[in-house]
Amino acid sequence: MTKPSPDPISPGAACPCGSGRRYAECCGRWHAGPLHLAAPTAEALMRSRYSAFVLGLNDYLLATWHPDGRPRGLEPNEPGLRWLGLEVRRCVQQDDSHATVEFVARSKLAGRAQRLHETSRFVREDGRWYYLDGEIVE
């Protein structure tokens, strides 16, 4: 995995995931950390993936996507896309290796508000959580 460019966001800035913590103490440590340093829970991974979408860290998104569903690549964010916030609604850990996270991510593009409501499935393999897939909630 390629590391993101230095300081995609100030380490002292509020984390984009909405946790209320500084980026360096929240998602930033997962984004910049070595491969053995991984988000400890499915929720932490989900939040770090949202922040990676906000910051355009496609290498991180691909590295945290389970190989069974991982795309070959990701397009950069649309020009003018603004991520507005993340609300984690529910986290359920079924067992040591499976969890779901329901969330709503809000964005705005070309003056139009968008809302993604998804229940994502996560799997833990070799001590690392991976995004497996998600189901859109209508």
Score class of each variant (00 low, 15 high):
residue 3 K to M: 12
residue 8 P to E: 07
residue 12 G to M: 11
residue 13 A to M: 01
residue 14 A to K: 13
residue 14 A to M: 06
residue 16 P to H: 00
residue 18 G to S: 10
residue 21 R to D: 12
residue 21 R to W: 08
residue 23 Y to Q: 07
residue 25 E to R: 09
residue 27 C to E: 07
residue 28 G to H: 09
residue 28 G to W: 00
residue 30 W to I: 01
residue 33 G to T: 08
residue 35 L to P: 12
residue 36 H to T: 15
residue 37 L to G: 04
residue 38 A to W: 05
residue 38 A to D: 02
residue 39 A to V: 06
residue 42 A to F: 02
residue 44 A to E: 07
residue 45 L to D: 08
residue 45 L to K: 08
residue 46 M to L: 05
residue 47 R to F: 00
residue 47 R to Q: 05
residue 55 L to K: 07
residue 55 L to G: 03
residue 56 G to R: 10
residue 57 L to F: 04
residue 60 Y to M: 02
residue 62 L to N: 02
residue 62 L to P: 09
residue 62 L to H: 07
residue 65 W to E: 07
residue 67 P to K: 02
residue 68 D to F: 02
residue 71 P to R: 00
residue 72 R to H: 13
residue 73 G to F: 09
residue 76 P to G: 02
residue 77 N to H: 12
residue 79 P to E: 09
residue 80 G to L: 04
residue 82 R to E: 14
residue 83 W to R: 00
residue 84 L to S: 00
residue 84 L to Q: 11
residue 85 G to R: 11
residue 85 G to V: 08
residue 87 E to A: 14
residue 89 R to Q: 13
residue 90 R to Y: 06
residue 91 C to V: 15
residue 91 C to H: 12
residue 91 C to P: 03
residue 95 D to W: 03
residue 97 S to T: 15
residue 101 V to T: 01
residue 102 E to G: 11
residue 102 E to Y: 02
residue 104 V to P: 09
residue 108 K to V: 15
residue 111 G to P: 04
residue 112 R to C: 05
residue 112 R to N: 09
residue 112 R to V: 11
residue 115 R to A: 02
residue 118 E to R: 02
residue 118 E to K: 01
residue 119 T to H: 07
residue 119 T to M: 10
residue 119 T to G: 08
residue 120 S to A: 10
residue 124 R to P: 06
residue 127 G to V: 08
residue 130 Y to I: 08
residue 131 Y to S: 05
residue 131 Y to E: 07
residue 136 I to W: 13
residue 138 E to W: 11
